[in-house]
Design a protein around this nucleic acid. Structure first.
Lengths: 121, 121
DNA sequence: GGAGGATTCATACTAAAGTACCAAAAAGCT
DNA sequence: AGCTTTTTGGTACTTTAGTATGAATCCTCC
């Protein structure tokens, strides 16, 4: 609107060709159109697959169980997970077992797949 | 440009307010700007994480080995993979072993993770 | 038609994963 | 403090995964 007013004044002053003024205004608004459009599109660019905390709670996954799940998805063995979480391998196995039941999975690989589909990874 | 010419003629006919003409032209080009921008952005909308066939070849993964890899990523056991590919479990094990070496993975879960990072899944 | 990779399968073995069951701390909650 | 869930860990066991090795068949390419 401001730009529009300015262009109007330019005409009132009136020593330029009208076509030029129109061309200039058109160009300016053309660019503004592109600019605004790009901005709105980049504001929410991609629906980032964020971790769905609600679903985690819904499944009854405890904090520790979820941590183990994350480590599994990294491809770690039970022993490696035990080290990274500072617990025994027995503990990890317990968590894994419970986790598989809650995710309705038979294997850890399947657990990862299901977890991905549920957007909790 | 066509639109521009038309608007010029309208002025030559000259019985409308100049401000209105400018406003109209501005609006039209504004919309055109948005439209064109949206079109170019939707032409290549999202860099879809497509399977990188080159990388598969680069790793020396055979057709069958890759198929096994895909089944692994679905969370299937060796026995289940054997059934789905109509081969024995022994064969699957062979493929898995070779596949792990080529992907430089120690476990199938790790293979899946690496494969994802390489965009071959 | 022979060379070589791919696919198939087997046996025998080791390692890892997973189950079942139990039980003691630790942490939260009211 | 008392109750509940979580976290921890153990033993014992079964199952699955993975390795090593060897070998037959199939396919393709030259």
């Amino acid at each position: 609107m401001l730009l529009f007013k300015i262009s109007t004044y330019a005409i009132v002053d009136g020593n330029m060709k009208i076509e030029l003024v129109i061309a200039a205004v058109a160009l300016v608004f053309f660019i503004i159109g592109i600019y605004l459009n790009k901005k709105t599109l980049s504001r929410n660019p991609q629906k980032k697959p964020e971790v769905d905390k609600n679903k985690i709670a819904e499944l009854g996954l405890s904090k520790r169980e979820y941590e183990v799940l994350v480590e599994i998805s990294k491809g770690l063995s039970n022993k490696e997970i035990a080290n990274s979480l500072f617990v025994s391998e027995s503990t990890v196995k317990t968590h894994v077992s419970n986790l598989l039941v809650k995710l309705d999975a038979q294997r850890r690989t399947q657990a990862v797949r299901i977890a991905r589909q549920l957007n909790i990874l």
